[in-house]
Computed example of a mutant assay.
Amino acid sequence: MTPQAGPPLLTRSTISELLARYRHLPRKTLGQNFVADPNTIRRIVTLAGVTEESSVVEIGPGLGSLTLGLAMTAGRVVAVEADPSLLEPLTEVTAGTGVEVIGADALSLDWAETLSGAAVASATTPKVTEWDLVANLPYSVATSLLLGVAERAPMITRGLVMVQREVGERWQAEPGSRTYGIPTVMLARWGTASIVGEVPRSVFLPEPRVDSVLVRFIRHERSPIPTDGVDDERLDRVVRTAFGGRRKMLRRSLSGIVSLEHFEVAGVNPTDRPEQLALADFSRLAAQLPAGR
């Protein structure tokens, strides 16, 4: 796919026309608030650092507002849409742009198979080894989607995603803050997240009832957990159990799985509360659990 001028970006009037013609009522449960402002689309593409060398995955393209902006700049674009009723208008909007539209739920997608199929090498298009994620993620499942990509799609090395403000604040939170929690720790296992911009409600159709932010995600080149550390299953259990008793001291919230001796070996104060611990602290605690426990 060669970057090209392509069709004009979608506006409020063109989105309204598409919705009416396809008799599609935006589904709140799927977070279908479509970006109806071309300037916002250009801003997202610029902040994402997309170039003609970029291979981009978009989750939840909807009617193709952001997809068109990406197609004008990126070398390759794969758009993954879970709502079957949007596949026909999305295919119409992106016709002739070279975008590959895939009808699938990104939460259960086999990323290795999907992106290897989209990245078939040829004499003019070398095999893609790294992908960017650029998307207006469905807000209700944004954390699950990004964690799924982080865990199961190592070929996606960075991203810029739009999410609800509260979600973005949780992702970038520091230990000790009120927004620090399970998503913060589990995402830190794979990379760093930082808010790099705000998006006003007025650019969406329909307008959401929440504020939105743009979050940059960069995958770690090396795992922050030592090679002799802990598997994800044990880490997940310790983190979720600890935050299940957020106001409790760790010796109480983790009493069923971590002994006082384990706290001492891990170098973690049992009187601390979960929001005081960093990823490395949780990983040392989790390493004390027998494998498979």
Rank of each mutant, 00 (worst) to 15 (best):
V45R: 11
E53I: 11
M249K: 15
L235G: 02
V93K: 09
E81V: 07
R247A: 03
S259Q: 07
S54A: 07
K28F: 00
L147N: 07
G159Y: 03
E275H: 11
I195Y: 09
L86N: 10
A104E: 06
Q32Y: 03
E275Q: 12
L107I: 02
R170Q: 13
H220N: 00
E233Y: 11
V203H: 00
V78L: 06
T184D: 04
A5P: 13
A278K: 14
A71P: 01
S108W: 14
P84V: 06
A150F: 08
G64T: 05
G6I: 07
T46F: 14
V78K: 04
A36K: 13
V213Q: 06
A36R: 13
H262E: 11
R201K: 12
E166T: 00
G148E: 09
S65T: 09
T241R: 10
T125N: 15
K248P: 07
T157D: 03
L109N: 05
S54Q: 00
V163E: 06
T11M: 12
G75H: 10
G229P: 06
M186F: 10
D132N: 14
D105A: 11
G197A: 02
V101E: 10
A71F: 00
V238K: 03
A188P: 07
L90G: 07
G103V: 12
T46R: 15
G176T: 02
G176M: 07
I257P: 01
D110E: 02
M72C: 15
L70A: 00
R165M: 13
